[in-house]
Design a protein around this nucleic acid. Sequence first.
DNA 1: CTGTTAGCGCATTCAA
DNA 2: TTGAATGCGCTAACAG
Lengths: 367, 367
Amino acid sequence: MPLYQLIAKIDNNSDDERINGDHMKQKITLKKIAKEFDVSISTVSKALKDSHEISEELKEKIQAFAKFYHYKPNSLALNLRNQKTKTIGIIIPQIIHHFFTTVISGIEYVANKNGYNVMICMSMDSYEKEVLNMDMLANGVVDGIIVSVAKETEEKKDYAHFKGLINNGIPLVLFDRVIDEIKCNKVLTNDVDGGYLATKHLINIGCKRIAILTTPDFVTVGKLRLEGYKNALGNSNMDFDEELVIQINEEHDITDQIKQLFSLKNPPDGVFAVNEIYAAIAIKTANKNGLKIPDDISILGFTDGLISQYTTPSLSTVAQHGYHIGQKSTELLLNEIEFQDTEYQYQTKIIETDLIIRESTKKLNIP
Amino acid sequence: MPLYQLIAKIDNNSDDERINGDHMKQKITLKKIAKEFDVSISTVSKALKDSHEISEELKEKIQAFAKFYHYKPNSLALNLRNQKTKTIGIIIPQIIHHFFTTVISGIEYVANKNGYNVMICMSMDSYEKEVLNMDMLANGVVDGIIVSVAKETEEKKDYAHFKGLINNGIPLVLFDRVIDEIKCNKVLTNDVDGGYLATKHLINIGCKRIAILTTPDFVTVGKLRLEGYKNALGNSNMDFDEELVIQINEEHDITDQIKQLFSLKNPPDGVFAVNEIYAAIAIKTANKNGLKIPDDISILGFTDGLISQYTTPSLSTVAQHGYHIGQKSTELLLNEIEFQDTEYQYQTKIIETDLIIRESTKKLNIP
DNA sequence: CTGTTAGCGCATTCAA
DNA sequence: TTGAATGCGCTAACAG
């Protein structure tokens, strides 16, 4: 008795086990269904798509059979046939950075909502790994790629792999760490404004000498936040003092580099750190140096990460809205992927930052 | 003039741009190469594999041509042909948990080293998303899957999707949050021992009343760490006091739940928190209640995450070695994927924990 | 030494 | 209403 007749005899709510048994269930394909009903593969294909070309009777039988065996078209075959995978790739420098995980969450959310899956790769801030990952993803594995550029790539300024990608016609969105000379969709934090906002707030609460803990210049975001810092000082007619700019070298002990500030003849009464880690370390260092936060010194960070809420005192900071950045990047990417017309216009979205005031900065005195 | 003759005229170091131009470079395939040389596709295929069946002369020309155009076999076609993707899937509850990102890093490292890529999915601790992700991955997309079970799944105890996966013959490794009744490779933290270690240390430094901040019972890891806590108390002839067990309900304010401890008639002088967040909040709460840490109260956490080093005082904790867990999981998975013989033996690897002593616990007095 | 054929699983156009 | 043929890109067994 053919299997499809068996189905009728089996309660629809029956336990899967009865069919699967303990044995390995081999995947069910169009071919197998076709053989079962002694029809052609294309007939089955159409029947499962509820095509009007197929008789109701046959469609019903085939559909019931397919449903019973949980038939699902094989992704690999579909990918090859359609020349697309409904998957988008992400290349980020480090997954252990909280900011990136929030971005990923945002990407995942929008991607899934639109029927896409997500493939995450890490460049570990290495140029070579970035290129490798990109080659892999570009080779048909994904329909588009979202990237935040590796530090080493920023340093080398070698962007050939990005150009190649675009020449290959693979949609690309850059976020956070972007590259000016690459023409593509971009989503970035308003870092200059964020730096300005942070510094301005320190000024507003009465800080007279504001230090900045930043990165080396080749890390774009650090450079931009520094720019915002300078703008805010200038805007308030405060002097810019080189002495108060610490470009952290992560190869050496960070605490030591920060400590210098407190032994200055004229030490700062405010610190703006361009990321959460520097800020957290600044808090601990200030604490250890006997400074009261925020009475003796106010400290403000960047990125509303995991740490901010749990330092003592909790850290005032600039929120970067990673989740939103991820969402926006994905929307742009999917737009480009599914774009049909001839003239596609690249966009650059700026995501604004917000101040989150906690305990590490003095209260604003509103007169 | 056929293209392959052109190649000879172009300096090998030439700029890609000359070929790619500003136009979209369409992917080069075996077929196109075959047409170029007016040979069959299989001849090209063999030539590129340096088969001895092909004449040296032809091989050279074809290889040069392919290299020049950066020919790479199309992944989708290979996947379909080989019925495998050289990709492994991961399903984790939350990517924003630092522990999971360390595990992912470990997975990524071992996978890449062995020529595999990684596809990360998030269940968001939802049963439904876990099932969806698994169905997607199981449908040919990956060669094997590594999972840490969603909370909701643990609560429902509905493991049909795991059984289905195994029936389908798809290798599965469970880590951290595992399921006893599923037969597969497993990697887990020695949570009982970790809980024991933590509690014992608090006892050793002289704590007399030790509270525990744990999860509801259905979260297995919380339950196990509680078990270790009880063991340590028993082992030291200390009373187990229900009053000192707080099962945190994350739907409500955590600080409020912890505060109860400090208003007990007989308050604790030690706190063991089964994760980093609870510990960090405990530190802040104790601080606010005017308690000196570690003089009045010692606090010990679990998981060496991002936060631990930046709390004030920095948090003593139990290191869970997520990176190692990820590595081990992947080794097991790849073993199973590439296993050829008939009788495969599942293993369960226990990863031991380690105490990391920082400032939130009293110094051990060695007499 | 080179080509033909078949097949991976599916969708689609065209023919019957 | 159904089926055959074609192709997505690649490999491998088999023929010549």
